[in-house]
Amino acid sequence: MATNTRIILICSGKGGVGKTTLTANLGIALARQGVRTAVLDADFGLRNLDLLLGLENRIVYTAQEVLEESCRLDQALVKHKQEPNLALLPAGNPRMLDWLKPDDMQRIVAMVAEQFDYVLIDCPAGVEDGFKNAVSASKEAIVVTNPEVSAVRDADRVIGLLNTHEIKPVHLVLNRVRPKMIASQEMLSVDDVTDILALPLLGLVLEDEQVIVSTNRGEPLTLTGSNSPAARCYSNIAKRMQGEDIPLIDPAKEGSGMRDKFRRLMQTKIF
């Protein structure tokens, strides 16, 4: 087995914060950098990774058949046509949840890890069995959250569980950041969230309508070479994962008009 394969769980606790979108975009971005990347849909109940990658019509076998030994791993892996360095291992039938155990998850991830440099695991929401199975097979984790109280609280819970499972390192991605709302102090700032969760920030992703456009098409933003705000954020994150030193976008410093300057003045901490 390729011992230095990075096996990274992408999790959040709360649903709908952007795990699957991040997994798809990072998968493509890493593959474009020339590293062999597998994305694994561990959200067996509500699988979507195939759809976001535009691979839903090319699935023949899934993780289920591989585990049942009714097909080989390479028959189940769906290679991306435009980015052949990327492959998807689709989730099986939701009924898999009835019998899937941490052992099964570890077995299938170990098989995938043999052939790839990165394995990104798209984790289901919640902290129950689906999460525990996925954690048991992971080495590192990225916790995705939004600058909202419920998402941050759930992220905190997940971070505690990752610590007890000795997953490390654990990094944070703050998704759906709206610079204008932060400037008018109607949204938790990037510092607020990193202070509260006490995790190193791997990156932030700006709120961006193009995310929806790209999911409509099944073409992640990082695939089309888009220059939209979220696209830049996703590819910066992928570069940081590869060890490049890319400075963070400072949402407070976005914009340089009088208005933005005034907003910044109002944000000055007095005590």
Partner: peptide, 14 residues
């Protein structure tokens, strides 16, 4: 502003 309220509430609940 609601961000301060969010921060305070989160700190307490966490």
């Amino acid at each position: 502003a609601s961000a301060s309220t969010a921060r305070e509430r989160l700190q307490l609940v966490l």
